[in-house]
Amino acid sequence: MPAATNAANADVRYDGEYVGLMNLPDNGDALLPVPPGTDPAVRPRQAARVYGDARIDADFSTMRVKGQVYNRTYAAQGTELEALEIAPTDIQSDGSFSGDITQGQQGAGSYGGAFGGSNANSVAGALHATGHVGGVSEVEEFGLFVLERSN
């Protein structure tokens, strides 16, 4: 079991930062320069960076988890992106969980994670979302969060 189940530890919130990559263009400012005359077909490209915040709410009395990835920004353009909802799902006996990502009641992908540390003081997870930026089905995002207990 990932955490004590007494009433004081039943509802636990985890907050922290989120980082992701999308298959959209970035500005290339994180790439090393290439020699002059390099064929454009072999020049490296930089994946679009997404920054934001994440929150996970765990109810260890019912062994359920839910959350949100919010304040998401497409770094290259400074564009704010809609929040991704971490739909409620069960916490397994080993502290892991997996479920669906939604955005405005629409399916947008999947996520998974696990609680760790002493008495489940942290949680880490990953997500994969598609079709969540402007409804374009080819847009994919892979993201990560590592959060600390905040209450």
Results as ranks from 00 to 15, higher is better:
Ala75Pro: 02
Arg72Gly: 01
Val136Asp: 14
Ser137Trp: 02
Gly95Ile: 05
Ser98Gln: 13
Ser98Arg: 11
Gly131Ser: 04
Ala108Ser: 01
Ala87Thr: 07
Asp100Asn: 15
Pro35Ala: 14
Val65Ala: 10
Asp100Lys: 15
Arg72Trp: 00
Leu32Trp: 09
Asp29Trp: 03
Arg49Ser: 11
Ala58Trp: 03
Met63Phe: 15
Ala114Cys: 00
Ala30Gln: 14
Ala54Tyr: 05
Gln105Gly: 13
Gly117Pro: 04
Leu24Phe: 05
Glu85Trp: 03
Arg49Tyr: 04
Arg55His: 07
Arg45Asn: 05
Ala47Gly: 11
Ala114Gln: 10
Arg55Gly: 09
Ala54Lys: 07
Val136Arg: 13
Asp94Ser: 08
Asp29Pro: 12
Leu84Ile: 09
Gly28Arg: 04
Val50Trp: 03
Asp29His: 12
Asn27Ala: 13
Gly104Asn: 15
Ala41Cys: 00
Val19Asp: 04
Ile86Ser: 08
Asp39Lys: 07
Tyr70Leu: 05
Gln92Phe: 08
Asp39Asn: 12
Ala54Glu: 03
Gly107Asp: 11
Gln68Ile: 09
Gly134His: 04
Val139Tyr: 02
Leu84Lys: 01
Gln77Phe: 04
Ile101Gln: 05
Gly78Cys: 04
Gly116Ile: 02
Asn27Val: 09
Thr130Tyr: 08
Pro88Ile: 00
Thr62Trp: 01
Gly116Tyr: 11
Ser93Tyr: 07
Pro35Lys: 10
Gly104Met: 01
Ala126Ser: 15
Pro36Met: 01
Asn121Val: 02
Gly37Tyr: 06
Ile56Cys: 02
Leu81Pro: 00
Leu127Gln: 08
Asp94Gly: 11
Asp59Thr: 06
Phe115Lys: 06
Arg13Thr: 15
Gly116Asp: 07
His132Lys: 01
Pro44Arg: 14
Leu84Asn: 00
Gly20Ile: 00
Tyr18Gln: 01
Thr130Lys: 09
Ala124His: 11
Ile86Gly: 04
Gln106Asp: 15
Val133Lys: 00
Ala120Asp: 03
Pro35His: 02
Ala83Pro: 03
Arg45Pro: 00
Val123Tyr: 04
Ile101Asp: 02
Gly109Lys: 07
Leu21Asn: 11
Ser110Arg: 15
Ala41Val: 03
Gly113Ile: 09
Ser122Glu: 13
Gly104Ser: 11
Thr79Asp: 07
Ser96Glu: 09
Glu85His: 05
Tyr18Trp: 09
